[in-house]
Design a protein around this nucleic acid. Structure first.
Lengths: 205, 205
DNA sequence: GATTCTTTCTAACAACCGTTTGGTAGAGTA
DNA sequence: TACTCTACCAAACGGTTGTTAGAAAGAATC
């Protein structure tokens, strides 16, 4: 490994770090003000630079959203795949998936908020086709799990599976809009309470 | 009542009807494409007129959003107030509130979607202060109900009330994003399934 | 049939948007 | 000290935005 090579790697690493820094800032602003309503000048402001300077690091505003969302989704699916590979029973799989989901919210809160609010509009463009594909795979995974759970006798058979799927999906992810890392409850505690609710209901027996 | 007066009332009614028509169109477009991302020309297109013509009926794009949201919230609170006035037990009150909520989604789906997606950003302006007030009152109502339910022994006491509140709030309203009037399930059927899940849980006993 | 009133169109406006271009300060290298 | 490269600034660009003013078409009224 030549010195020239090491330098190139050093600057590449520094560059990637700055990118990640700017993306974190952008995600925060996009999440709080909304992607369409946010100007690149506002993102730059929050990062302490001028609007045009962002274009040294990124091709476009859209490519920022792209990188934010795809990074989050890749990590999410890596976590999900680990759970699925463990090959647990339906109930334990659901528990683990929910726990991982709240973990994702903890680590990628602004990205999850963006996904919730903007994915439907963004997904129309070909660049964001992976959003639609992720959504499809997500639904397939959960529906298969819920059907298996009913077959195994772990879940109630008198509920509409498609409805249960939507309820679980929505409640889990919408938590990103109010969750505060470092708040009263940790992501793990919220996951625990959430599971107690979803599995057992809120009614006193 | 003079003829002149009757005419004035007639045109005022026709005018209000046209307003409502345009607002329904606007709400639909705002809901599907997002408020900030939607141009007034797109709204006008959907209504079959030109962009500038909208300003004969409305002061601004913002005032359209205002009228859409306040109309929905007024009707929602009227329904909620009827439920609260009936003075039922905690469990029946919750059931009735959830049913009314899905009824609101059925009648005001685009407005509910808008409220979900945009209220946070809009509420920063003084014109939309009622959004914040409605949110506060909504939380107060639900928290009071849940606390009463625990006291009465209707609801489990081992759950975090604030979390249960958010859980119920979010799942109910987020249904507006996928609910289709005239679809496989009616609003009442969804409410029924939803209540079965929230009250009893999805786990087989 | 002339007049008025209602609703829409035509045509623009200033402001703002995402983006580009060319320059520059400063650190690293020789 | 001279050169290079990185990260940013300064200033502008064409296009789009919400919005406005005046004209025009058509129905209602007299």
């Amino acid at each position: 490994m030549s010195p020239r090579r090491r330098d190139a790697e050093g600057t590449a690493a520094a560059r990637a770090e700055r990118r990640a820094e700017l993306l974190a800032t952008a995600a925060e602003v996009f999440a709080t003000r909304g992607y369409a309503a946010t100007t690149v000048r506002e993102v730059a402001d929050a990062a302490g630079i001028l609007g045009g300077s962002l274009y040294y690091h990124f091709d476009s505003k859209e490519s920022m959203a792209d990188e934010i969302l795809s990074t989050f989704l890749n990590e999410m699916w890596a976590a999900y795949d680990r759970v699925l590979a463990a090959d647990l029973g339906a109930r334990d799989t659901l528990t683990a998936l929910v726990a991982e989901s709240f973990g994702c919210i903890d680590r990628h809160r602004p990205a999850v908020v963006m996904y919730q609010n903007e994915s439907r509009h963004l997904a129309t463009g070909p660049r964001f086709a992976y959003l639609t594909e992720s959504r499809r795979r997500f639904e397939e995974m959960w529906m298969t799990l819920l059907e298996r759970g009913v077959r195994e006798g772990a879940f109630r058979a008198d509920l509409d599976i498609a409805l249960v799927y939507r309820f679980i999906r929505d409640t889990v992810w919408v938590a990103a809009t109010w969750y505060q890392p470092g708040g009263r409850l940790t992501a793990a505690q919220i996951a625990e309470q959430y599971l107690a609710m979803v599995l057992g209901g809120i009614q006193h027996e």
